[in-house]
């Protein structure tokens, strides 16, 4: 995958203060171990989520130590 394509497809986690009724929300305990690791690394190290991570849906909110929305990078 070309670098530009990689960045186009990769995602990042944005901390959000509130959640609206129409949003999809999951708790980290609903994620498999690898996806949990990805979320943890992204939060701890402010790292983008690789394009190869299929366990997260764009736009969904993940409940971890804060609420994080999965956004396109």
């Amino acid at each position: 995958m070309a670098a530009s394509e990689y960045h186009r497809r990769s995602r990042h986690l944005e901390r959000v203060e509130s959640v609206t009724a129409d949003e999809t929300v999951r708790h980290v305990d609903q994620l498999d171990s690898d996806t949990l690791e990805t979320v943890y690394e992204a939060v701890e190290n402010d790292r983008p989520i690789p394009a190869t991570e299929f366990g997260l849906e764009e736009g969904e909110i993940i409940v971890f130590t804060d609420y994080y929305r999965v956004n396109r990078a």
Binding site: A21, T24, V25, H27
Partner: peptide
């Protein structure tokens, strides 16, 4: 419903619908 998330509702942080 999502039993893990009901505590977030009780905390006042999450509306009912996503649960």
């Amino acid at each position: 419903y999502n039993r893990i998330l009901i505590k977030e509702h009780a905390k006042g942080k999450l509306p009912e619908a996503p649960i």
